[in-house]
């Protein structure tokens, strides 16, 4: 589903990604674990082409991301950021954003989908509330719903629970797992928390200073050697 081949990315004078290789099967959840500054977020942004790689290639469904219309690619490859950014307007308007900007608008479908997905993520009672008035956890639910309403095939999750307290983080983690598994989505879940990586990932890729140093099932990784 996702094939990343030898990608390189430089930001300013610093080489952030130094030849990343990674394959993610359809329906698989790969957790990428690494310390701050290891290049995890940059890698996700390269996959949905928010930034351009300097070298190498990324394929989604066997097609290079460069060959996709970027706007269409980003609908197939959803990205949830570490800190949710709420747009102007209420929760319903936030969730429907991706549908409202599309060329083929269908108001009835939009209303129905917003209500359905809001129930699924647990924000149905806030649909008319100002999105910026919600708590961090509620905002992250809205951000998830906003990406999922576009029916992506791939979800890129950039530390989606790291800014939440442990209890809310755990709730959101379980919610995300439920949502992506019920849709059989292909997921790359970036985290700096090894225990979270072990809980969520079918496989784990350990990233260090712009390189993936090991990719395997959690139980096969010699954690003491690769992640200190």
């Amino acid at each position: 589903m996702i094939e990343i081949s030898n990608i390189r990315k430089r930001l300013g004078s610093r080489e952030i990604l130094k030849g990343i290789n990674l394959s993610v099967e359809k329906g698989e959840i790969v957790a990428i674990v690494g310390h701050s500054g290891s290049g995890k977020s940059t890698l996700l942004r390269c996959i949905n082409r928010l930034i351009e790689v300097d070298g190498g290639d990324i394929k989604v469904n066997g097609v290079s991301v460069r060959k996709y219309n970027p706007v269409e690619l980003r609908k197939i490859v959803g990205l949830v950021f570490q800190t949710p950014v709420m747009f102007e307007g209420n929760v319903g308007e936030n969730i429907s954003y991706g549908l409202r900007i599309s060329k083929n608008k269908d108001l009835a479908y939009e209303t129905e989908e917003v209500e359905r997905i809001a129930r699924e993520v647990g924000v149905q009672e806030f649909l008319s509330s100002d999105a910026n008035s919600l708590s961090g956890g509620e905002q992250q639910r809205v951000a998830l719903a906003r990406a999922l309403i576009l029916k992506p095939k791939v979800m890129l999750l950039d530390e989606p629970t790291s800014f939440l307290d442990p209890k809310s983080g755990g709730v959101i983690e379980n919610l995300i797992l439920k949502l992506v598994k019920s849709r059989a989505l292909t997921v790359i879940w970036v985290t700096h928390d090894v225990s979270q990586a072990k809980r969520v990932g079918n496989r784990i890729a350990v990233m260090q200073k712009g390189r993936i140093i090991v990719t395997d099932k959690s139980e096969r990784i010699e954690w003491g050697k690769v992640y200190v």
Partner: peptide, 16 residues
């Protein structure tokens, strides 16, 4: 900037 990137990530055009 964050808001613009979040919108781009949802398939919005730069113009929009």
């Amino acid at each position: 900037k964050d808001k613009i990137e979040a919108k781009l990530a949802l398939g919005a055009t730069s113009d929009f």
